[in-house]
Design a protein around this nucleic acid. Structure first.
Lengths: 106, 106
DNA sequence: TTGCAATTTCGCAACTTTGCGAATAGACTG
DNA sequence: CAGTCTATTCGCAAAGTTGCGAAATTGCAA
């Protein structure tokens, strides 16, 4: 999402401090939500870059458009490796998984 | 597994040619098997690097040792993003997902 | 060998993701 | 406006993953 000018940016920062700072469980949920949103975006980007509609991609991996739509929904929380691989396979992409260390403090 | 000396290496190559060359579905399964094996190894590496037993890690993520054992089994095919994230979370690692293009031909 | 902790295997219940059709909504064109 | 293509939402059944305890096995040290 785009960076905003100063006033709004500050408000966001203030809200962040108020609701998340020092609250690991909230932070964890936030991160998860971001990760899911990112996966949704990646799927859609891959599909549109390949020039397919949801129905076309669905057919390629042997399912229906509503399933693809669900996967591209930013609020969907049920992403699975199996599905990512099926999509990757149809679009000639390998799914790479990495564990990357997080800095501990904050 | 360890590299072997020439004769066996050639045999492996011959077998590869005989059973996989030009057979996409077999190749796909092979790749999947390798990917699963790799995830299993990564989980185990992460756990041992952190100095935990299977039971200890299990407790950290709220499950049992037999579940961890299953995940570290190279033949296990059911890896999920959800579980990888739980493990990563307990061991201070973020799970990164990337689609990386495959070369099409051979 | 014995003892003990760690790992592995098995079976099944509980939960989660997928399959899929039908209905709805949005965008664009003629 | 009607017609068409695309995307989205809903509900439920099918398939897949996780939970978990008990029993069997492995590995190591006394």
């Amino acid at each position: 999402m785009a960076k905003r000018s100063k006033p709004t940016g500050d408000a966001v920062e203030i809200l962040h401090r108020r609701f998340y700072a020092g609250r690991p469980s909230r932070l964890k949920k936030l991160e998860e939500a971001r990760a899911n949103e990112e996966i949704a975006r990646k799927i859609r980007a891959l599909r549109t870059a390949a020039g397919h509609t949801q129905s076309q991609l669905a057919k390629l991996i042997g399912t229906t458009a509503s399933v693809i739509c669900r996967l591209e929904d930013a609020d969907y929380e049920g992403h699975s490796l199996a599905m990512l691989r099926r999509i990757g396979g149809a679009l000639n992409q390998r799914v790479e998984i990495r564990f990357v260390p997080m800095r501990r403090s904050a």
